[in-house]
Simulated scan of single mutants.
Amino acid sequence: MIKTMQKQVGGAAKQVRQAFLGLVARSAAKKLQLKGLNDEVLQDIEVIQQVGFASWIPAGAKVVILPIEGKTGRAVVVGSTGASVMVEVEEGETCIYDQFGNEFRLTESGAKLNCDLYVDGDVFDKKGSMQKIREIYDQHKHGNSPPAAPQMNVGN
Score class of each variant (00 low, 15 high):
K3F: 13
M5A: 15
Q8C: 08
V9S: 07
G11L: 03
A12E: 14
Q15F: 03
R17I: 10
R17K: 13
R17Y: 10
Q18G: 11
Q18M: 12
V24R: 02
V24A: 04
A25T: 08
R26K: 15
S27Y: 06
A28F: 02
L32W: 00
Q33H: 07
Q33I: 11
L34D: 01
L34A: 04
K35D: 03
L37E: 13
L37H: 04
N38V: 05
V41Q: 05
L42G: 01
Q43L: 09
D44I: 00
D44F: 05
E46S: 05
V47Y: 01
V47W: 00
Q50E: 12
V51F: 08
V51K: 13
G52P: 01
F53S: 06
A54C: 11
S55M: 05
S55Q: 09
I57G: 02
A59W: 10
G60H: 14
G60V: 12
V64R: 11
I68Q: 09
E69H: 14
K71R: 13
R74T: 01
A75M: 08
A75E: 02
V76P: 05
V77G: 11
V78Q: 04
G79V: 04
G79E: 06
G82Q: 02
A83I: 08
V87I: 06
V87H: 12
V87M: 09
V89L: 09
E91L: 08
G92D: 06
E93Q: 15
C95G: 03
Q99D: 11
Q99C: 10
N102C: 11
E103R: 15
E108Q: 14
K112G: 04
L113H: 06
C115I: 00
L117V: 14
L117N: 05
D120R: 11
D120E: 14
D120K: 14
D122F: 07
D122Y: 04
K127Y: 12
G128V: 03
G128S: 10
S129W: 01
S129E: 00
I133F: 08
E135C: 14
Q139N: 14
K141Q: 04
H142N: 07
G143L: 06
G143F: 03
N144C: 02
S145R: 07
P146W: 11
P147V: 13
A148C: 15
A149E: 08
A149Q: 06
P150Q: 10
M152I: 02
N153Y: 00
V154T: 11
V154F: 05
